[in-house]
Design a protein around this nucleic acid. Structure first.
Length: 287
DNA sequence: GCGCAGGGGGTCG
DNA sequence: CGACCCCCTGCG
């Protein structure tokens, strides 16, 4: 572990708020000076924006440039993606302008699975609290600039927790789901390395075998983790609302079926529907 | 200030 | 299709 710094200049499509508050991650927190700090790759990373310059400061295992470029998806051309989405219709154009600094992170698959299991029927402040407490209790401590941080526990580390332990951390009825999923992964019944090699539908089916992973959670995992699949369209209450409001216009949004929404997403946004979802979601939820 | 309902990024049986 | 745990928020 070493202190490292990395700076990128003239970075388009990189806004801290858009990236960290668009709902894809739970372990990034804003500091009083407007920078954000998070725990990734068994290390701690701070991100600061100065004009078009982005400054990364960290203690990390491995090379910070490599880690940052991968994690923040820096080698993908978001300008091109945004242009493509903007051409679809006026709603996409507006939403892309609103969330112009979004980048979809390459988050650790295991951590993303557990995080989104926790997200079920839950709210963001509480989700963040639960993940923080789990990390504090079962992760590895890192001290940096006089503050203590905790890595998200590995499957081995988390397997130390009993169902009761998990319940005591405030997970509620998700305790058993976390417990069972941890064991399933640990036993290799679901091989996280193998999932990455599979096509989206097969990977999705495999994720669905995990306790606590339903369609919405599976799609979030596919989109927000290192699986990086843009051909999924996670549908939650917000997305349903937006899609109905913009395209379907049913009097009762609850009567709109998932199937119908997915069909429209496929037709309109195609292979990058996951990205379209994220811009629309962020736009409508914030505004 | 504080106590109390209401509800939340779905999943499971 | 109803129940589900528990914190967070907002209102009285």
């Amino acid at each position: 572990m070493k202190q490292q710094k990395y700076i990128i200049e003239n970075q388009e499509s990189f806004e801290l708020k858009d990236i960290f508050e668009c709902g894809q991650c739970f372990r990034w927190n804003e500091n009083e000076d407007g920078t954000y700090t998070g725990v990734i790759n068994k290390g701690v990373l701070n991100v600061e924006k100065q004009g078009k310059k982005v400054i990364f400061t960290s203690v990390l295992d491995g090379d910070i440039e490599e880690i940052v470029r991968f994690y923040f998806d820096l080698d993908r051309n978001y300008e091109e993606i945004k242009a493509q989405l903007s051409n679809i219709d006026k709603y996409l154009k507006t939403s892309v302008e609103y969330g112009k600094g979004i980048r979809i992170l390459n988050q650790d698959l295991w951590e993303t699975i557990i995080s989104f299991i926790i997200s079920a029927n839950n709210n963001i402040p509480r989700i963040k609290g639960i993940i923080e407490r789990i990390s504090e209790k079962y992760g590895t401590e890192i001290e940096w600039n006089g503050k203590k941080y905790y890595t998200f526990p590995t499957p081995e580390q988390l397997s130390q927790a009993t169902v009761e332990d998990l319940r005591a951390l405030g997970t509620g009825f998700r305790d058993i789901r976390i417990y069972e999923t941890t064991r399933k992964v640990l036993r290799g019944e679901v091989d996280l390395n193998e999932i990455a090699k599979k096509d989206t539908l097969t990977a999705r089916d495999e994720l669905l075998t995990l306790s606590g992973v339903g369609p919405k959670v599976a799609d979030c995992i596919l989109l927000f983790s290192t699986l990086k699949r843009f051909d999924v369209f996670p549908i939650d209450v917000w997305v349903r609302r937006v899609m109905n409001e913009l395209y379907i216009k049913n009097d009762d949004e609850n009567k709109v079926s998932k199937k119908e929404i997915m069909k429209i997403a496929e037709q309109k946004f195609g292979a990058i529907q996951g990205l379209a979802q994220q811009y629309l979601f962020y736009w409508k939820r914030e505004a």
